[in-house]
Design a binder for these strands. Structure first.
Length: 271
DNA sequence: CGTAATACCTGGAGGC
DNA sequence: TGCCTCCAGGTATTAC
């Protein structure tokens, strides 16, 4: 479900309802997420207040007292606001109830996501330590892509989805950015020019920023923290459109598999 | 080191 | 209706 725009949309939706609020109850219905829910989660959270919510890559960081929660939505997770009295549905694994009656409710059918303590001792949390730059920051540009890609024979699409290269670019937005930049997703990363990488970096920024503005992409059931769907799906040019006509040239879009992921592209517009 | 394959888990869609 | 296979927005680990 969530790539960077969906996680950012979630953060923006829930932040005003939980920041500065005291946690009054924690309900864990299933502890078996990708990382087991910490045994002390309930006891450690009650009585603390949420600090300012931030995001790094597709991770949400929620400060509580002297520590922070590291929350990842995995493939099918969502973090939504509910109210005391709203009955939990199947796969609603964790509720964090704050003063005033708002509930931060974690739903995740596939359980690829997790909530865990951010490591504080011994420096940086290993899950964040090796991440590349944020795609919307000035630290990310075509020059970085060009430099890191020299000598790489793997396809450019899995290359830009590598978190060590740049974070937050998942299957949807990698596909869309490559279309916008006119680059064939199968092309070897090391065989793309500096000029084309400059264009690709701009395309990644443009696509992600537009998706955030639209509230993310709702394919099946993504909803923001406040329950609204994202409207970027209407803007998708290639993702999910195999065998449909290219919006630019009319040629039928083709699907191949790269790095175990479906990749749709236009054989005429992308070279 | 880079690259590819695999594993984690559930549910929806489509074929029969 | 049911059973089967395939596919899905992510990431960590393993094996070359």
């Amino acid at each position: 479900m969530p790539e960077l725009p969906e996680v950012e949309t979630t953060r923006r939706g829930i932040a005003p309802h939980v920041e500065g609020r005291e946690i009054v109850e924690v309900i864990v219905r299933s502890r078996s997420l990708r990382v087991p829910v910490p045994a002390d989660l309930e006891s450690a959270l009650i009585g603390e207040r949420f600090g300012e919510l931030t995001r790094r890559a597709k991770y949400l960081l929620l400060p509580v007292g002297s520590r922070s929660l590291l929350w990842h939505l995995g493939m099918s997770g969502s973090l939504r606001l509910a109210q005391v009295g709203d009955l939990p549905r199947k796969h609603d694994h964790v509720d964090v109830v704050v003063e005033g009656g708002a509930i931060l409710r974690y739903h995740d059918p596939r359980r690829f996501g997790f909530v865990d303590w951010l490591a504080t001792e011994a420096g940086v949390d290993p899950r964040l330590a090796r991440l590349g730059p944020e795609p919307l920051s000035p630290d990310f540009d075509g020059e970085r892509l060009y430099t890191l890609s020299r000598g790489r024979r793997a396809a450019i699409k899995p290359f830009i989805m590598d978190n060590a290269v740049v974070v937050g670019v998942g299957n949807i937005y990698a596909s869309e950015a490559l279309f916008m930049a006119g680059i064939d997703p199968r092309r070897a990363a090391g065989r793309v020019s500096r000029e084309r990488y400059a264009r690709l970096a701009e395309a990644i920024k443009t696509v992600l920023a537009a998706a955030i503005t639209q509230g993310g992409t709702t394919l099946r059931d993504f909803v923001s923290g406040t329950g609204e769907p994202g409207y970027f799906a209407q803007r998708l040019n290639v993702y999910g459109r195999a065998n449909e006509p290219c919006r630019e040239c009319g040629h039928l879009l083709r699907q191949v598999t790269l790095g175990q992921r479906a990749s749709v592209y236009c054989p005429l517009c992308q070279r």
